[in-house]
Amino acid sequence: MSDSTAIAHGAAAGTHHEHPPYLRHHFESVDQQTDASNFAMWLFLLTEVMFFGGLFTVYMIYRNWYYPAFSAASHQLDVMLGGINTVILITSSFTMALAVWCAETRKKSGLVAMLVVTFLLGVVFLGIKGHEYKEKWDKHHFPGASYSVQAFVNPASDPLQVNAQGKPLAPLAPDMAARTEMYFCLYFAMTGMHALHMLIGMGILIFMIFRARAGAYTEGHSAYVNYFGLYWHFVDIVWLFLFPLLYLINRH
């Protein structure tokens, strides 16, 4: 190594054999590059796990403290809409997986189609989510000064406060009814963070659709689609936990 300076020029001039354009200068091989970026993507997702982990911790504590409020407030959510959204998200995850497969097997039109479908499913998901948000907003269930506990102290006045048999739920005592605001705080914080992740993902999807139409990803280097797929599946997984925890409390 002591004679390293002597041959500095030779190495820098680039005597590498087989140097595909997407291989970055500091990696020795494509395998090493793919391995490293794949690992990095996983680590990034793990930071996301911890981020949502903080929110889930808060949720866990308050759900234990104010279970009646959480149970009553969750009846304000529409299991049908939530269920449809879950199915949509799972489907989008599936189409994303197919997009990865198309990219790996170099099917350009398939890749574009799958990305578009994934994007559209994301739009539908957010549309339904937005509809749900609007409903909460109109009913003054958005936390803040104008929050209303009407539906919980007087469930008979609210068609949603019914149990599985269609009978009105028991009214909450006023102090417990006030705690439903905590539920909606968490509902908006958690689903909002999830929706934000979807929005970011869909921004990247648009970018990828254009690149894919120009022929990227299907020329042997599909890693980028794969990393995005990991992200999209992760967002899907978060929802798989949010759905039962927020929508399905005490539905019987």
Partner: peptide, 26 residues
Amino acid sequence: PVLATALILVVLERVVGIGIFDPTKG
């Protein structure tokens, strides 16, 4: 990331008025 969660909740509490750390809201 957990610090990020805590800070985001503080910011939301100040901006939107959610009550996650507010004793008067439980």
